[in-house]
Structures are given as structure tokens and as C-alpha cells.
Design a protein around this nucleic acid. Structure first.
Lengths: 193, 193, 193, 193
DNA sequence: TATGAATGAGACTTCATTCAT
DNA sequence: GATGAATGAAGTCTCATTCAT
């Protein structure tokens, strides 16, 4: 009784292919084959390669910024918010390693119009981080840093690294969250007693 | 009486073009035009587009890892080494913004053989950082973290973020170095007195 | 209680679209949208794009040749026949501007088999004109020209020109008929008294 | 010692193919094969299919309007000018039957920008005819007609018909010229003595 | 050394047509 | 009768690469 969800199949296939390659080395043919449909079918469901890619990438970005936002408005301390965001970030990055790869493999993109949209999302996330940091400064748990630059660094830490490791040492996500949180909060210097 | 250094011109042109675009959106024609030579000339000096790109990218990576290495073997404390490396990293990233862009815009690459070489360089840098961290742990100035993961994070912090800012708040490189060093060493938590 | 005349709607829509574009720039999708039906419906009523187009074009051609024929067999002088045919031609061309455009925009066509059919209709019209001219020669009102070539020229005059003008000077159809008739009958030379 | 004139070969091949088919039924592949070069070579010499077609069509149109202009400024009577133009038109149309076919087969075209250029050339020719007719009216050899409409008709007569016949009855171009001239000047009515 | 014409594989995309529902 | 998803052939165009000069 259930209809075939071809569009879903295509998106799944595209996720696979785009995460292993990048926008330019991925061809519509590759996606069609992975999805088990014809090239024409791709164009029935999406107007262009870019539109298909957009849907994937923007969905991915949304997954982050929307959740960041949710944490940001909770009625908890900045410290807890940072922990939650890192926890969420690491978990999602691990579970959606493919999406994360698409994000990573396509920093640079196609049409500038599109690029702007991506940057906008990026800036949204940075703004959210910034506000949390400002809250923390007011609460006197975060030191009086430049919030914007610090936000950029936190995002860099969150996005750049995790997928690379998992296969190696941190099979244990919990440890990875702790590690990341500690790095961001305390840095690497040994506290002298 | 000095001959035209055509190969040099080509490399300079390629640096310009590759830093504004990426590997796949850059065509040999664009490079030839920028260099003021014909496409054929490109192929006299380089066997392929990939080889030309390789020279640029690998040179860029070398610039970092070789200097990291130099710092690593100096007879100074780990703490000082970290400072020097960050200082060097930020300065070079700023001065060689174009090369840095190539690195950023082409995380993902072409042939897997090439990709391995890039990863190898990357791992070299990580190893150097790791050793410095281990030195620091022994010296008891760095806390007892997982050195490899910490090294990855330091590299992420160093590479991902700087170009974005410069135009904005940190016209002053010194401040940027301080900021980065402080972030890595102490994190963002406020020290209670 | 009248049923929806879907086939009629399709033909009307096709007339609109084909008259603004031409066979190759008109897609089945465009016609389907204009008709407010799905592409599948088009294929229920017509076996192919060509068949749909054929119906339109051949209908258009028929409108002319059948009326020409009617005039041809009337019991009037050749002179009167020519006037009637020009009158009819101009009027119909004006009223059925869309059909006329289809005729004009698709001189060259698709399958040669089809093309032959179009040429056949064309030749039918020429033959009718030829006979009228021969009648006129016998009646000594038409000069002793080559009737076939003259017929071709009359058809050219009739079909090629009218649509272009209407918007300009001849809002008045009567004048246009007079002008065309005079051009064909008397040419442009001034009669000397 | 003579170099291969590849661009010339391509144009010749394109003329062949475009005159037998039309813009949309002619593919770049067909032209490449006819010219004995690869598809890529077409794009070395022309930026697009449209540009290639443009060169052919606009050249063709120029051939006419430029020669019309030359006749128009000669110091002869309007009557003689008309004869010369018809003579030239018929001769060229016959010799360049292929170009003439391209003109005929592509009344409707591609980009509207292009279409405007074609219409401009068309209007140029009409203007030239108009001026000649006005001269004739002043000289009292042409009757007092509407010059613009008459010009349109003359052009229609000139362009629509000739190629079709030659194969048939008028192997003799001279006769064809006479016939056309007579049709335009005197129409078909028999002069009564 | 240098050029630029030529090549051909492969990319994106369109669209007439089919067919299960 | 009608729908719309699916197909696949065919078309335009790009571009790394080669090669005769």
C-alpha cells in the first residue's frame, strides 16, 4: 500500500555520493545510479543539480542552527548551554557524518547567491553563540573575551574535527563531548594548585 | 639580461586564480590568461592541471609543517613553542592569505593518491604538535590531555578561523595572536580569584 | 449538461502556443499547462506531438483551399473570382491571425511524409488559382501569362504580407483588400492617359 | 603552403545543413560531421550554436540589403532601379539557393535580441524600396500608391517564390526576371487596346 | 620554448513518450 | 478519461589534454 518515495531515495543517494565526493566531482549520473533511477527522474524531482544540492546542504545547516537556537532560549546558565550545544554538536556530527562531510567538502560553492545563503546560516549560528557568551560574561562564568571572535573559534572547534577521530580513539562519544567541552572551557594549560 | 621566468609567472597566476576559485571551477584557460601565456605553455611547464595544483598546495603545506618542525626542535619550553607556532601560523596565514585560501577551498581533492599526500603532511603537523604537547605534559605546564586529539583541535583552531576576522576587528595581528594563544591555553572560563 | 470538451480545450491551447512559438520551441508541457490538463491527457487524445500539430496545421490549410475551391466553381468571371479570393484571404488571415502565424512560423516542418502533405495542399491551392487564371485568359481579362508561376506569386502576395501591416496603416480591412487586388491586377506602374 | 581554413569549412558545412533543415532540427553534431571535424572544434571557432547560425543568417541578409542600397543611390530612374533590384534578387536567390533557404526556413528564430536584428535588416530593405517607389511617384512612372505597403509586397514577391520554380519551368533566369518585373509593374490584367 | 587549433570524453539538461494507478 | 511519475535518447556545451608548427 505504501507508495515508492522516489524523491526520498534520491536524496538518500545524493547524500551518499555528495558526502564521498564534492559538488563538482559528483555527477547527476552517479546519483541516479546510486538511487536506482534514471537521470530524467532526477530532473522530475529537482530542477537542477544545484537545487538538489541546496536541499541537502541547507537541510544540514538548518539541523544545526535550529537546534542551537532552541538551546539558546532555554532558561539555563550559559555554561550549561555551551555544554548542551557541544553535546548536541558532537552527537549530530557523529550520527550525520555524511551530512557533516558535505558541509566540510563544500566550503566553497557555486552561485554566489547560494553562497550568501550559506554564509547567512553560518552567521546565524555565530550570533547565537555570541549571545550565549555574552550571557556567560554577565553571569561571570565566562571571561571577558571578544564574544564574536570566540564564537567563531567555538564553531571551528565543533565542526572541523570530530568526524576524523571517531574511527580512531573515541569510540566513546561521551568522552569526546567531555574532551571538547573541557578544551573550550579550560584550554590546555595545567592548573597549578 | 635575466630571462623571463615563465614557470614562475604561471605559478603566480595559478595562485591568484586557485585562491579565488577552487580546483574544479578553475580552468587551465583562466590560468593561462592570467599568466599571459597560451594553454600550450602551461603544458610545457607542467604535465597536468593536477601537477600544477599539487605544486601550489604542497608548497603551501610545506611552508607550515617545515616551520612547525623548526620550532619543535628548538631548545625552549613547550609553552614557548606553542606560542611561537601560533604566532607563526597567524602571521603566515595573514601574509599568505591566497595560499591559505587554496588550502581552505580544497579540503577535498582529486585523486586519492594526491589526497593521501595531503593527509600525510597534515599528519606530520599533528605529530609535531603532539610531541610538543607531550613535552608540555612532562614539564607540567600542559595538563594531562590526549595529545593527539588536542593536536587536531589546535590545528583546527589555527587554520579555520583567522582569515574571516582580519577584515573586521583584528587589524592588529598581535592581538589576534594573543587571543588565539589564550583561547588554546586557557579556554573561555573565567578564573575565580 | 454538456460534458467538458477536453480535446477542444487542448486544440485551443495548442493554437495559442504554437502560434506564439514554433513546432520545436513548443513543448507538450507548455500545451498541457495552457489547456489546464496533464501531459498524459494530451496523449490520450492525440498519439503524438506531430499528430496534434498536424490537426492544427492541416485544418488551417483546409480552411483556405476549401474556400478557394468553392469560389473557383462559382459561375462568375475570373476577375470576380480573384477579387473574392483575395477578399476571403485577407479577411480570414486577419480573423485567424493565430492560425496564420502557425502557417508562417512553420514553413519547414518535421517528417518528410508530413511535409509532402503540406506541399500537396499548397499545390491544390495553386492549381485552383491556375484554373482561375486560365479562365481569365480565355475571357481576355487576364493577360497571357504563365498561369502556374502567376498563381505562385498570387499566393505569396496573399500569405506573406498581411499580418505585418494591420497594426500599422490598414486598420481598415476594405482598403487592404482593394490595395492587394489592385497590386495583383495592375501592378505599380502609372497608367498614362 | 596554404593553411587549412577550418572556420571556412565549418561555415560551408553549416550552410549545407541549415539550408536542408532548420535551426532546431540541425544539431552541432550534424554540422561537425559534415565539416569533418570534431564537435569541440565547432566551439573553438564559434561560441555557441546561435553564434554560428547568426553569422550565416546575418551574412545572408547583408548580401541583400547592401546590394539594394547600392542600386538605390545610383543616378538612374526609379523604373530602372526596380528592374535592377529584381534582377539582382532573382540572380542571387538562384545562385545562393542554400542561403535563401536558411532565410526562408527560419522566419521565426531564437533569442528575441537576435530577432530584432533580423527585423532591423528587413526594415532597412523595406525603407530602400520605399524610397525608390517615392522617386518613381515623383517621376510619374509609378502610380500614387502607399509606398511602404507596396515595398512590403515587392519584398514578398521577391523572396517567396523563386527557388521553388527554377527546377521546373524557368531554367532561363532571364525569363524569370522579366516575369517578376512585369508582375510587379503591370499586374496580371490584360491591357485593352 | 611557445602557440593555438583540434580533440573527445563527459557533464548538465530537455522533452516526447509510456504506463501504472 | 485523466494523472503524473518515470524513462532515455539526444542536444548543447566545457575543458583537460595533445600536437604540428
Amino acid at each position: 500500500m505504501k507508495k515508492k518515495d522516489t524523491k526520498g531515495e534520491i536524496l538518500k543517494a545524493a547524500l551518499n555520493i555528495f558526502s564521498q565526493n564534492n559538488y563538482h566531482t559528483t555527477s547527476m549520473m552517479m546519483i541516479a545510479e546510486e538511487a536506482g533511477v534514471s537521470k530524467g527522474t532526477l530532473y522530475w524531482h529537482f530542477n537542477s543539480k544545484e537545487e538538489l544540492f541546496r536541499e541537502l546542504l541547507l537541510n544540514g545547516l538548518d539541523m544545526f542552527s535550529s537546534n542551537f537556537e532552541k538551546v539558546a532560549v532555554e532558561d539555563i546558565s550559559a555554561d550549561e548551554k555551551i555544554y548542551k550545544i557541544i553535546k548536541f554538536g558532537v552527537e549530530v556530527l557523529v550520527e550525520n557524518a555524511k551530512t557533516a562531510n558535505i558541509l566540510r567538502n563544500n566550503v566553497e560553492l557555486i552561485s554566489s547567491e547560494f553562497q550568501e545563503k550559506v554564509e547567512e546560516k553560518h552567521n546565524q549560528s555565530i550570533d547565537i553563540f555570541k549571545k550565549i557568551l555574552e550571557q556567560g560574561i554577565k553571569e561571570e562564568t565566562i571571561k571577558d573575551c571578544n564574544p564574536r571572535n570566540t564564537a567563531v573559534m567555538m564553531l571551528a572547534v565543533l565542526f572541523t574535527s570530530h568526524a576524523d577521530w571517531l574511527l580512531e580513539e573515541f569510540a566513546d562519544i561521551e568522552k569526546q563531548i567531555e574532551f571538547t567541552y573541557d578544551f573550550v572551557m579550560n584550554g590546555i594549560r595545567r592548573k597549578e594548585n
